[in-house]
Amino acid sequence: MSRESDVEAQQSHGSSACSQPHGSVTQSQGSSSQSQGISSSSTSTMPNSSQSSHSSSGTLSSLETVSTQELYSIPEDQEPEDQEPEEPTPAPWARLWALQDGFANLECVNDNYWFGRDKSCEYCFDEPLLKRTDKYRTYSKKHFRIFREVGPKNSYIAYIEDHSGNGTFVNTELVGKGKRRPLNNNSEIALSLSRNKVFVFFDLTVDDQSVYPKALRDEYIMSKTLGSGACGEVKLAFERKTCKKVAIKIISKRKFAIGSAREADPALNVETEIEILKKLNHPCIIKIKNFFDAEDYYIVLELMEGGELFDKVVGNKRLKEATCKLYFYQMLLAVQYLHENGIIHRDLKPENVLLSSQEEDCLIKITDFGHSKILGETSLMRTLCGTPTYLAPEVLVSVGTAGYNRAVDCWSLGVILFICLSGYPPFSEHRTQVSLKDQITSGKYNFIPEVWAEVSEKALDLVKKLLVVDPKARFTTEEALRHPWLQDEDMKRKFQDLLSEENESTALPQVL
Score class of each variant (00 low, 15 high):
264 A>T: 02
233 E>T: 13
163 H>W: 10
139 Y>D: 01
256 F>S: 03
32 S>G: 12
133 T>M: 08
180 R>L: 07
106 L>F: 10
36 Q>P: 09
103 F>S: 12
175 V>S: 11
126 D>R: 07
31 S>N: 08
220 Y>W: 05
18 C>M: 09
22 H>R: 09
13 H>A: 08
87 E>L: 07
252 S>N: 12
248 I>W: 01
262 R>M: 04
151 G>Q: 15
241 K>R: 03
235 K>F: 12
141 K>T: 03
117 R>S: 01
35 S>Q: 14
228 S>W: 08
133 T>F: 13
155 S>K: 14
233 E>M: 15
204 L>T: 01
66 V>W: 10
129 L>M: 08
71 L>W: 15
187 S>D: 03
265 D>R: 12
236 L>A: 00
22 H>D: 12
40 S>D: 10
82 D>P: 05
20 Q>M: 15
239 E>G: 07
267 A>G: 06
224 K>Q: 03
178 G>R: 13
18 C>E: 08
31 S>H: 12
55 S>C: 07
132 R>Y: 10
255 K>Y: 01
175 V>N: 01
184 N>E: 04
271 E>T: 09
70 E>G: 03
12 S>I: 07
42 S>N: 04
169 F>D: 02
65 T>K: 02
99 L>W: 06
99 L>H: 07
153 K>P: 02
166 N>M: 00
128 P>Y: 05
237 A>W: 09
257 A>V: 06
247 A>W: 02
228 S>Y: 05
243 C>S: 06
59 T>I: 08
108 C>M: 03
121 C>A: 13
132 R>G: 12
182 P>Q: 03
236 L>W: 06
261 A>L: 06
218 D>Q: 01
250 I>S: 13
23 G>S: 07
135 K>T: 08
210 S>H: 00
243 C>A: 02
213 P>T: 04
153 K>S: 02
63 L>G: 03
216 L>N: 00
18 C>W: 09
125 F>M: 13
251 I>T: 00
204 L>S: 13
9 A>N: 10
65 T>V: 06
10 Q>Y: 03
19 S>I: 01
94 A>E: 02
59 T>W: 09
56 S>M: 10
136 Y>H: 04
208 D>A: 13
179 K>L: 08
177 K>S: 06
206 V>L: 15
162 D>T: 14
180 R>Q: 06
80 P>E: 09
114 W>G: 14
18 C>I: 09
131 K>V: 08
103 F>R: 04
76 E>G: 12
205 T>S: 04
127 E>K: 12
237 A>V: 15
34 Q>N: 08
50 S>R: 13
238 F>I: 02
143 H>S: 03
39 S>Y: 08
104 A>V: 04
123 Y>W: 06
12 S>V: 11
164 S>V: 07
170 V>I: 10
118 D>M: 04
